[in-house]
Simulated scan of single mutants.
Amino acid sequence: MTSPEMTVGDLIDLLSGFDRSAPVRQAMNPFFPMAHRLAQVVQFVDEFGQTVVYLAEGRDADAQLGHLPSEVAVALTWRGPVQAPPRRPRRSAGGN
Score class of each variant (00 low, 15 high):
residue 52 V to R: 11
residue 16 S to R: 14
residue 45 V to L: 08
residue 60 D to L: 09
residue 90 R to Y: 10
residue 7 T to H: 06
residue 89 P to G: 05
residue 94 G to M: 12
residue 13 D to R: 13
residue 14 L to R: 14
residue 4 P to L: 14
residue 61 A to C: 03
residue 30 P to L: 12
residue 12 I to C: 08
residue 63 A to I: 07
residue 73 A to Y: 00
residue 33 P to Q: 08
residue 52 V to C: 01
residue 58 G to N: 03
residue 64 Q to E: 10
residue 68 L to H: 05
residue 53 V to F: 02
residue 17 G to E: 14
residue 10 D to E: 10
residue 34 M to V: 12
residue 52 V to W: 02
residue 49 G to D: 09
residue 13 D to F: 09
residue 43 Q to D: 06
residue 12 I to Y: 07
residue 42 V to S: 03
residue 55 L to E: 02
residue 41 V to R: 09
residue 55 L to S: 06
residue 12 I to G: 05
residue 81 P to C: 05
residue 35 A to Q: 07
residue 73 A to D: 01
residue 56 A to L: 15
residue 83 Q to W: 03
residue 23 P to T: 13
residue 14 L to Q: 13
residue 43 Q to I: 05
residue 12 I to N: 00
residue 81 P to Y: 07
residue 31 F to A: 15
residue 12 I to T: 10
residue 43 Q to W: 00
residue 36 H to E: 10
residue 6 M to R: 13
residue 61 A to K: 05
residue 11 L to F: 13
residue 58 G to A: 06
residue 8 V to T: 12
residue 29 N to M: 00
residue 11 L to I: 01
residue 62 D to L: 05
residue 96 N to I: 13
residue 74 V to W: 11
residue 66 G to T: 05
residue 71 E to Q: 14
residue 6 M to W: 11
residue 3 S to M: 09
residue 61 A to V: 02
residue 28 M to P: 02
residue 15 L to P: 02
residue 76 L to A: 07
residue 69 P to E: 11
residue 68 L to N: 01
residue 80 G to T: 11
residue 87 R to W: 06
residue 24 V to Q: 07
residue 29 N to G: 06
residue 1 M to Q: 06
residue 9 G to D: 13
residue 73 A to V: 03
residue 54 Y to C: 09
residue 22 A to D: 06
residue 82 V to L: 04
residue 29 N to T: 09
residue 87 R to T: 15
residue 60 D to Y: 04
residue 65 L to A: 00
residue 37 R to D: 09
residue 90 R to H: 14
residue 69 P to I: 07
residue 15 L to M: 14
residue 24 V to A: 07
residue 38 L to M: 13
residue 71 E to Y: 12
residue 11 L to K: 03
residue 85 P to G: 02
residue 62 D to P: 05
residue 7 T to N: 01
residue 95 G to R: 10
residue 49 G to K: 09
residue 83 Q to L: 05
residue 37 R to P: 07
residue 35 A to P: 02
residue 70 S to V: 12
residue 13 D to P: 00
residue 54 Y to E: 10
residue 31 F to E: 15
residue 88 R to H: 00
residue 6 M to P: 00
residue 35 A to C: 08
residue 34 M to Y: 04
residue 89 P to D: 11
residue 26 Q to S: 00
residue 56 A to R: 15
residue 6 M to I: 15
residue 59 R to D: 10
